[in-house]
Write a protein that binds this DNA or RNA. Structure first.
Length: 734
DNA sequence: AGTGGGACGCTTTTT
DNA sequence: GCGTCCCACT
């Protein structure tokens, strides 16, 4: 260890919490001063290091709790760290600057809001609001939304923000074809609208704060004074603006510790830059690097398979996982070949049923897919088998319509100038406000330069609105005044309950006969209950837009179904990895759009998938898959070929079928060894070579003629089905 | 103002 | 094949 670096006296006996760490982990914890990069492979105790280091800094009195800045990507990670640090300290961890990039930036920005033209009560918009606002901006600029999808512009603006580019910082090279080169103009207009609405989107939180740290010495000095230590989780996922923000904040004391794993960088598509972690030593001169390579999670074969796979990537920092477990021996990674996706679904389901039968907990089983839509097939199968499951990562609590509506009511209450919120609820429940009335309000709002709420009141008073609409809108505006008063007098909890009631919003769902309605009412109750935990309405609104998530998924004996992205950071005894087929995984679009870089990210995703497994990993592929309307033949993923033979066991449909006493289509060639069973299967024998021009029969596509041969991949012109590419083992010579 | 039907598109996603 | 989004019709 570099003795000059660590200020812990060498003679001191190690504290109890340090003795529980291995040498590298301890190194990472005790190297407190100066920049440090902890390269933490999957399952090497990353979170333990991070939390112990945090506690260590506090326990050795290097800093007060509010002098440490600890940053994560997700609220879940932040919560976990808070709990574990609290447990180590023996008291709840309070006064910490611990949270997500966004939550921390929001907290900072509220203090300096006026420097960017906002007030401290600014609204944080979600994706939905952002898009609606952008559509309005595009409309106003007369950009044809048909030709130039607002979604695409949203994406571009988000990427600008990810890179720390304000409209003023946009270089001349940033223009694209989009909207005939008007992207910069639209971006600026969008930002102006946000300021006018006293609102910020997620990207703005970081963009504004970074801009302030860059340009305002007083702001920078304030935070340099505040934070002595900076801790960062999942550093490989940071984007440019997050990196700039961190670097600016860490400049003061230079005590920055970033933990990450370049092999698990899977978010480049949302702006993450692996380069940040690869460049760490250059960015922070004199940085130390500690590698955590002892894996305490998985068996030897799983680690070997994952290591061999990821070794195919270039430009890695280099890290070799080795097992740190005593009981690391285990089954090889199972590679299962299926005739079609239905069979894959059946077999995965059966296998899970078998595991359950053997006494394995369903909570320790996961099916990890590349894309969300793939979960459906497995859901159906699990329902049929009566196996409880949960799909992780559906709609979040605050994304539900009823929650967003209720929040919109609160937003209008809290900030009457919140036009977006007002627009959302003005006709929910129905008040007869249609296009005509809406246009009148917009017009008045624009000409008189007042928020929509004020415009609405004026139109009611002046008779600009007529009849039932006038009545209803007038009533709503009077109600808002009353609710605002109630909120000030009796508190926001009662105000929300009253507002939902008197506005007719709850009534609307009570009258709704759809099966979801009762659930929605429950969610509303939950919202009112949650509001009680907050002292102010503003604090609650921040919580909802930045933190709140799905609670209902928690706990229970259930199989987990999720995307590979969603599985990062989790672990299970048994992991099923279906759909390992070229085009599906690696995903075709990822490769088309980003070439080799895209492929490497897909491979990292595969690596993440494999390393989620503690004891059993099942990789599978199907020869035929129904995608959208029609059947597609697919060839096994190249990632399967990249797994080391010594640590995998292959089995085909037929061996499986025999074992499970199920009838499977007779498409798999007879497996060479008679005793080939599920547990010790042989690689399926290769059929006789089929020459170009040879006639073949395919179970699904019928008869055809081979046009080209590429190893075991055949291009075949089928008599009826047309040209397809299939694996030779799925056809018979005729 | 509400609804029905046709066109479209369809990777990953946190905050 | 399915869900969603938008427009046109009523």
């Amino acid at each position: 260890m570099d003795g000059t670096r660590s200020s812990v006296s060498e003679s001191e006996p190690p504290a109890d919490y340090l003795s529980r760490l291995n040498q590298e982990q301890r190194d990472a914890v005790e190297t407190v001063d100066g920049p440090l990069l902890v390269l933490a492979g999957a399952g090497t105790g990353k979170t333990r290091v991070l939390t112990t280091r945090f506690a260590h800094i506090l326990l050795t009195k290097r800093a007060f709790p509010n002098q440490v800045l600890a940053v994560t990507f997700t609220n879940k990670a932040a919560r976990e760290m808070r709990e574990r640090v609290g447990a180590m300290l023996g008291r709840p961890a309070e006064g910490l600057w611990l949270g997500t990039f966004h939550a921390l930036c929001a907290r900072m920005l509220r203090r300096h809001a006026e420097l960017v033209g906002l007030t401290s009560g600014f609204t944080i918009l979600d994706a939905d609001d952002q898009l609606r606002l952008l559509k309005q901006v595009m409309d106003a600029a007369r950009v044809d939304a048909k030709r130039w999808p607002p979604q695409a512009l949203m994406g571009q603006i988000q990427r600008f923000k990810d890179r720390g580019l304000t409209p003023a910082r946009l270089g001349p090279n940033e223009e694209s074809e989009f909207a005939n080169g008007r992207v910069g103009e639209l971006y600026a207009a969008y930002q102006a609208r946000l300021v006018a609405l006293n609102a910020a989107d997620f990207g703005d939180l970081l963009l504004y704060m970074t801009e302030l740290l860059r340009t305002r010495e007083d702001v920078l000095a304030l935070y340099h004074q505040m934070f002595r230590y900076v801790l960062v989780d999942e550093y490989q996922d940071t984007n440019v603006v997050q990196y700039l923000w961190l670097r600016l904040l860490a400049q003061g004391h230079r005590n920055i510790c970033c933990v990450g794993d370049d092999d698990q960088s899977i978010y480049s598509w949302r702006g993450a830059e692996v380069e940040n972690i690869l460049r760490f030593e250059k960015d922070f001169v004199g940085a130390r690097i500690v590698r955590l390579e002892r894996n305490y999670r998985s068996t030897e074969p799983i680690l070997a398979a994952a290591a061999a796979l990821i070794a195919h990537n270039e430009g890695r920092l280099g890290k070799t996982l080795r097992s740190g477990r005593e009981d690391a021996a285990g089954d090889p990674v199972q590679i299962l070949s299926f005739w079609d996706s239905d069979e894959e679904g059946r077999m995965v389901g059966d296998r899970i049923a078998a595991l359950r039968q053997e006494g394995h907990s369903l909570a320790e089983i996961a099916i990890l897919v590349r894309a969300g839509f793939q979960t459906r097939a497995f859901e159906e199968r699990l329902i049929t088998l009566g196996i409880p499951y949960r799909v992780v990562g559906g709609l979040r609590f605050y994304e539900r319509a009823e929650i967003r509506d209720a929040i919109a009511y609160m937003r209008v209450l809290h900030q009457p100038s919140d036009d977006l919120a007002f627009e959302r609820i003005i006709n929910v429940p129905r008040r007869g406000v249609g296009d005509v009335a809406m246009r009148a309000m917009h017009l008045a709002s624009q000409t008189e330069k007042v928020p929509l709420t004020v415009a609405a009141e004026r139109l009611v008073a002046s008779g600009g609105l007529k009849g039932r609409v006038r009545e209803a809108v007038g009533e709503l505006m009077r109600s808002f005044a009353r609710w605002r008063e109630l909120s000030a007098r009796e508190g926001h909890v009662l105000a929300l309950a009253t507002m939902l009631d008197e506005s007719g919003y709850t009534g609307m769902w009570q009258q709704d006969k759809s099966p979801e309605a009762p659930g929605r009412l429950d969610n509303l109750k939950e919202l009112v209950r949650a509001l009680a935990d907050f002292e102010t309405l503003g604090g609650f609104l921040d919580h909802v837009s930045l933190v709140m998530e799905n609670e209902e998924n928690a706990g229970g004996e259930r199989v987990s179904l999720m995307t590979l992205h969603g599985a990062k950071g989790l672990e299970f005894d048994s992991v099923f990895l279906p759909g390992w087929e070229e085009g599906v995984f690696p995903n075709q679009r990822a490769m088309d759009e980003n070439g080799n870089k895209g492929l490497e990210e897909e491979r990292r995703l595969a690596y993440v998938g494999l390393t989620r497994a503690r004891r059993r990993a099942f990789v599978s592929h199907a020869a035929n898959r129904r995608i959208y309307a029609n059947w597609q033949t697919s060839i096994p993923s190249r990632f399967i070929d990249e797994l080391p033979e010594a640590h995998v066991a292959q089995s085909g449909s037929q061996a499986l079928a025999r074992e499970q006493r199920l009838t499977a289509p007779a498409v798999f060639p007879v497996v060479a060894r008679r005793n080939a069973a599920w547990e010790q299967p042989a690689r399926p024998a290769r059929p006789d070579k089929i020459p170009v021009g040879g006639r073949v029969f395919h179970q699904k596509f019928g008869y055809g003629t081979v046009t080209t041969v590429d190893d075991d991949r055949l291009d075949i012109e089928f008599d009826v089905a047309g040209a397809k590419r299939v694996l030779d083992r799925f056809v018979e010579k005729v």
